[in-house]
């Protein structure tokens, strides 16, 4: 493995850990943004240029901004009494560690059967466009519908309730 991979993996994991452990919510959101950026760079290191840039555009440009807006809109939620973690944090930690142990064990045990094709695949934007408009056109349309529905739904859910109006 190249040093670039280790660097990117370190950025991603450090960002993720900081997002879980930090105290201030905005710091958590920024750390999560660092983790998203690290993942996008990992996509680029896997020669998936288009997916990496899409990850940048969607996660850093939209999701991270949405999260910080939500944090600022729920402002005095920051002053919580009784710690950052829920009462059942120990059980949650055990479950997460168990999941990681099982997946890691499975990955390490299956090293010999995993595919290992080292030739760099070419996925030009043209190929992706042709695939999206040809074989995957139905999922594309459904995703468009889903995004529209989600936008409208999010606006309606987050809209002011009418009862408070004078």
């Amino acid at each position: 493995m190249s040093p670039v991979f280790y660097l990117l993996a370190a950025i991603t994991i450090a960002g993720g850990l900081a997002a879980v452990l930090l105290k201030k919510l905005v710091h958590c959101a920024l750390a999560a943004a660092a983790a998203f950026a690290g993942l996008a760079l990992l996509f680029l290191s896997l020669d998936a240029q288009f997916a990496g840039f899409v990850q940048f555009l969607v996660y850093l440009g939209a999701v991270a901004i949405l999260i910080v807006f939500a944090i600022l809109l729920t402002r005095n939620a920051e002053e919580q009494d009784g710690g950052l973690f829920s009462r059942t944090w120990f059980a949650g930690l055990v479950v997460a560690a168990a999941v990681f142990a099982v997946i890691g064990w499975a990955v390490l045990r299956s090293g010999s059967v995993l595919p290992n094709q080292l030739a760099v695949p070419t996925a030009t934007v043209r190929d992706i466009g042709v695939a999206l408009m040809g074989r995957y056109v139905l999922p594309l349309e459904i995703v468009a519908l889903l995004l529209t529905a989600a936008t409208i739904g999010a606006v309606i859910v987050a809209m002011h309730e009418k009862e408070g109006e004078q």
Binding site: L30, A33, A37, F50, F53, V54, F56, L57, L60, G61, A62, A64, I65, V68, V125
Partner: peptide
Amino acid sequence: LFFFALGASTEL
């Protein structure tokens, strides 16, 4: 796409 992805990152 790279250019617009970077433009989105400046917001943060």
